[in-house]
Design a protein around this nucleic acid. Sequence first.
DNA 1: GCTGCGATTATC
DNA 2: ATAATCGCAGCG
Length: 190
Amino acid sequence: MKLTKDFYTRDTLIVAKELLGKVLVFGDYKVRIKETEAYIGSIDKAAHCYNNKVTNRTQVMFLEGGHAYVYLIYGMYYCFNIVTEKSGIGSAVLLRNVDPIGNIAKMFVNRYGIPREIANKYQIKNLTNGPGKLCQAIGINKEVNGLSLLNDRIWIEDDNYTPASTSTGKRINIDYAEEAKDFPWRFYYE
DNA sequence: GCTGCGATTATC
DNA sequence: ATAATCGCAGCG
């Protein structure tokens, strides 16, 4: 069943952990969430909205939980986030790794421009295992930014899958974030 | 207006 | 280890 507003408008760390195993649905694409990272603007130097800074880019992070926050990184790749907490609190959860479930054939075309049948082992392994890769695979771009996950274009659902065990660790590629770089705000399972 | 820099990825 | 590539924030 589709996750409702009450799921998203909670503590960001809880939402980040409980998103593991849930299914993101976008058009005909379906992927299962395997790895997330939490970003909390009030105390987190790694967050775009650190110090509750509202800009044209970060304003989406302050919407009520249950919206999509999509940004362009390195001028080349999009990253997909889920906004959390009540309206006015700048926070979001980044999707860092997912397993492909539905419309996988199209994902190979989107990523490599080739049919699934001729993909090599390396390409299969790297289809959706990164924040930029998963967006390219399922066609997420700037137009998704700000969309509600409670409507019918994009949403997350629970199909009663529960990971056997989950792990916690430091977030990736935020060495500039001083003390925040050591916050254990990354959640994942194998 | 100009500058420097990323919540990344592919390739060497 | 490094190039690719551009929106955005900061400056003044």
